[in-house]
C-alpha cells in the first residue's frame, strides 16, 4: 500500500492538540516540558474545559507557558504560583485552576506557599516538573539535586554534609490532610506518558469534587543542564533519579497508598 493512500483524513489516529498554540516551543530539544504541556492540553481538550480553565505559570523554563497553551493564563512571581492560583480559585470556584511549576520554583522559593496551599486543601492542581536542577538560569544546584550530582554550582557533586539533603516535597505534602491526590510520574517512555495523562485527567476530575489539592509530580530530564543527549539523559534519569524519586501514587482519594 502506498504511503499517500494511508495519509487520508479518515485514517488519522494522532495529531497535535488544538489547545496548543502554533508557536514553536522555546525549550531545548528533547526536554520533557513539551510532552507535559501537550498532555495537559490534551486532557483539557478531552474534558472540553478549554473555556473554563485558568492556568498559572511559574518562573523558570516554563515562564512562557502562556505563549504555548491556548487557554487563559497568568504568570506569578517566583514561587508564588499556588498563592496566585488560590486567589483565582476563590474568586471563581467553578473554574478549573492549575499551576505549572518547576522544582526551583516550587521546592525552593515557593516551599511555604506550596505547603500551606496543600495544608489548606485549596481545590487546585499543582503540576510539578522535577528535573533536579535550575534549568533556565544555567544548571545550578536546586533543592532537589541528588547527592553527588554535578551541577554548575556543585562541580564536584552535591556534598550532603556541606549542602544538605535533597527534599522530597511531594512525599512531604502527601501527608498533609488537605492533599487529596498526590502522585509521581515521568514522561520518558510511551507507557509512562500514558500513565501521566491518566493522572492529570484524574487530578482535573478531582476539582469537580471539591475535595482538596491535587499534586502531580513529573520527574523529567534536563539534557542541557545535565550535559547529555536527550536519550542519554532519559537513561541517566532511570538509573539515578528513580531510586530517589520512585514513581507511583502516594495518595489517592485522600487515602495514603501503602508502599509494598
Amino acid at each position: 500500500m502506498d504511503i499517500q493512500e494511508i495519509i487520508q483524513p479518515e485514517n488519522l489516529v494522532y495529531e497535535r492538540t488544538q489547545c496548543l498554540t502554533d508557536a514553536t516551543l522555546s525549550y531545548c530539544p528533547g526536554c520533557g516540558h513539551g510532552v507535559i504541556h501537550r498532555l495537559t492540553m490534551e486532557v483539557i481538550e478531552e474534558m472540553g474545559i478549554q473555556q473554563d480553565t485558568l492556568g498559572v505559570a511559574s518562573v523558570g523554563c516554563s515562564v512562557l507557558a502562556y505563549d504555548f497553551m491556548n487557554i487563559d493564563m497568568t504568570q506569578a512571581p517566583h514561587g508564588r504560583a499556588t498563592a496566585v492560583a488560590t486567589g483565582i480559585k476563590r474568586c471563581w470556584p467553578n473554574k478549573f485552576v492549575f499551576t505549572y511549576q518547576g522544582d526551583g520554583d516550587l521546592a525552593a522559593i515557593g516551599t511555604a506557599e506550596t505547603i500551606h496551599t496543600c495544608n489548606r486543601g485549596e481545590n487546585l492542581l499543582i503540576i510539578f516538573v522535577n528535573n533536579g536542577i535550575y534549568g533556565m538560569t544555567g544548571g545550578q544546584m536546586a533543592p532537589t539535586t541528588l547527592p553527588g550530582m554535578k551541577s554548575s554550582t556543585s562541580p564536584y557533586g552535591r556534598d550532603v554534609e556541606l549542602m544538605g539533603n535533597p527534599i522530597n516535597i511531594t512525599d512531604m505534602v502527601s501527608r498533609l490532610p488537605g492533599t487529596y491526590f498526590a502522585t509521581r510520574q515521568s514522561v520518558h517512555k510511551p507507557g509512562n506518558v500514558r500513565k501521566t495523562k491518566k493522572a492529570l485527567r484524574m487530578a482535573f476530575e478531582n476539582q469537580k469534587l471539591n475535595k482538596g489539592t491535587s499534586i502531580v509530580e513529573i520527574v523529567s530530564n534536563c539534557n542541557s543542564g545535565w550535559k547529555m543527549t536527550p536519550a542519554e539523559s532519559n537513561k541517566w534519569m532511570e538509573e539515578h533519579m528513580f531510586p530517589f524519586y520512585p514513581l507511583g501514587d502516594m495518595k489517592v482519594n485522600g487515602e495514603m497508598v501503602e508502599k509494598k
Partner: peptide, 15 residues
C-alpha cells in the same frame, strides 16, 4: 513516537 515527541511534530495515520 508521537506520544514521546516533546514538540508535537508527528501526525500518525493508520489503516
Amino acid at each position: 513516537c508521537a506520544v514521546v515527541c516533546p514538540d508535537g511534530v508527528l501526525t500518525i495515520y493508520r489503516v
